[in-house]
């Protein structure tokens, strides 16, 4: 008897709530998104104040000659980030997306960055590439982009750093 009552309760409750559940879920998602945004903004502001913040980004243009497997980024001789790429991430990068690889705090002035990238090049050959760069951190947030693009003439990938601000 208790089981029957339990089942009936489940079905009635589901019917009562079912109509509004989707709307309540959407409201909940909206509120969670808002809280998440505010918390992330606060955390970023506390951990990486704009005056010292530098963001390091990776982009991939077309990628016929190269598909990165992993990437290691050093700044001023210290490893700042390492990343192993998933297929989904690669697909996103090949479609023009940009990945934020790291956020760091640095003092104003010149800084050296080095990136080592491994991956698969033309004819399935394994590639290991390195590139060095230098940027001057000034007042305010600063963005540095590591760009990987195809060198059609050499049929090889080409890497370079560029300042985004």
């Amino acid at each position: 008897m208790r089981r029957v009552v339990g089942l009936l309760l489940i079905m009635v409750a589901a019917q009562l709530h079912g109509a509004e559940l989707d709307k309540d879920l959407a409201d909940f998602k909206r509120d969670v998104l808002e809280v998440n945004k505010r918390l992330l903004l606060l955390e970023e502001e506390l951990l990486f104040p704009a005056d010292t913040q530098v963001g390091l980004y990776v982009s991939l243009d077309v990628g016929h000659y190269f598909a990165p497997d992993s990437l290691t980024l050093k700044m001023d001789g210290k490893v700042l980030a390492s990343h192993l790429y998933t297929d989904k991430e690669l697909r996103a990068l090949k479609n023009g997306a940009i990945q934020r690889l790291a956020l760091a705090n640095v003092k104003n002035g010149f800084h050296d960055v080095t990136a080592f990238v491994t991956g698969i090049g033309p004819q399935g050959r394994e590639f290991r590439l390195g590139v060095e760069g230098r940027f001057e951190k000034k007042h305010g947030r600063h963005f540095v982009q590591l760009h990987i693009e195809d060198d059609a003439a050499k049929q090889q990938p080409r890497l370079y750093f560029r300042d985004w601000q």
């Binding site: 963001g55 989904k88 697909r91 996103a92 023009g96 997306a97 940009i98 934020r100 982009q145 985004w164």
Partner: peptide, 15 residues
């Protein structure tokens, strides 16, 4: 994509 913030959104979106 000219702006890193937009590129980052696209990065998550495409996944």
């Amino acid at each position: 994509i000219e702006e890193p913030a937009y590129g980052e959104v696209v990065f998550y979106y495409l996944q």
